[in-house]
Design a protein around this nucleic acid. Structure first.
Length: 304
DNA sequence: TAAGATAAGAGGGACAT
DNA sequence: ATGTCAGTCTTATCTTA
């Protein structure tokens, strides 16, 4: 499912120029005070630092609007795959042209395997909804991966999927890995491994997904009330401040915090419900829960 | 310098309560 | 529904050739 890029606007509640981030539910939520607005305004802000280093290519002007036009509705009406034939191939051709322009010293064999990969990428594009911009950036990453010999010994699809995931994360599109797993028909382990390798070897940095955003997302998935959500957001900020959240899966933290918040707010939700909404196991939720409760006890004791 | 050994930490499954 | 434990996977660090 496609999500729009992050919108950064001013929060009308706390006003202080706080950021408001468009989470996948389509809500706008202030990362500081938790205020929720329902109007969707603000200019879409996209940045692509990697490609910005390419001097003469005007990649950012590529027409993504066409691919995006079906966003949202198309998941209900059905895939616009019929129109894919001509349009996509044209887009892929332009991608090829650009890639070739970047480096004309490609060897024949490399180019052939590259082409195979891009054919697969084209297929993926029809399954998951990928904008032109995503396809191009994915292709760029894949090409770099192949240049460094990272593809050898791994499946091409895993690398492609990982590249897609990275691009989505960089663009603030919180796509799920599950979609990619299904589309690429790879094992999660392979995909995750490829993902880590790409990050390390290509020096890519993906913005850590914001735990506050995660709380909001999970809360919406699990139909948790506004007050409880707010409480959970406060709580997770404390957890982050305590420093004990380092290296933990933000989704797991979000789930645990929400569970505790539900207990406090007398809004009964089972661990299973919340864990499922967050895409983590109940075990993880419990472990984090214990840790968080420990933190809260410590802080309250230190206050007393 | 590169490849193996070991330890620590995290997440998930199975079972018990 | 919730709590507990053993086995798995990954990364970092140390060792060995």
């Amino acid at each position: 499912m496609m999500k729009p890029a992050d919108n950064i606007i001013i929060c009308p509640n706390c006003g202080d120029g706080q950021k408001i981030i468009d989470v996948e539910s389509g809500e706008l939520i202030c990362t500081k005070c938790g205020y929720v607005i329902h109007d969707r305004v603000g200019d879409v802000h996209e940045d692509w630092s990697i490609l910005a280093t390419e001097p003469s290519s005007k990649l950012r002007t590529s027409p993504t609007s066409l691919a995006r036009s079906g966003m949202g509705l198309s998941t209900i009406i059905g895939r616009p795959d019929k129109s894919a034939g001509s349009g996509l191939n044209a887009a892929m051709r332009s991608t090829f042209d650009r890639l070739r322009a970047w480096d004309f010293r490609v060897k024949g064999q490399d180019e052939r395997s590259l082409r195979r990969a891009f054919v697969e990428l084209d297929r993926l594009r029809g399954i998951i909804q990928l904008s032109d911009a995503i396809v191009e950036k994915t292709a760029y990453i894949y090409r770099r991966a192949q240049e460094r010999g990272l593809v050898r010994g791994r499946t091409m699809r895993a690398i492609l999927g990982a590249a897609i995931y990275i691009v989505q994360r960089e663009m603030g599109i919180s796509g799920t890995m599950d979609d990619i797993i299904k589309a690429t028909n790879t094992k999660e382990k392979d995909l995750a491994r490829a993902y880590r390798i790409l990050l390390r070897e290509l020096d890519l940095k993906v913005p850590m997904l914001d735990p506050v955003k995660c709380v909001s997302r999970v809360a919406n998935n699990a139909n948790i009330g506004e007050r409880t959500k707010r409480r959970a957001m406060d709580m997770i900020n404390d957890v982050i401040k305590s420093g004990q959240a380092a290296g933990k899966d933000p989704m797991g933290l979000a789930a645990s915090v929400l569970y505790i918040a539900c207990l406090c707010s007398n809004e009964p939700k089972s661990q299973a419900t919340i864990a499922e909404a967050a895409g983590v196991s109940e075990v993880t939720l419990r472990k984090n829960q214990r840790m968080i409760v420990g933190i809260r006890q410590q802080t309250t004791e230190s206050i007393l």
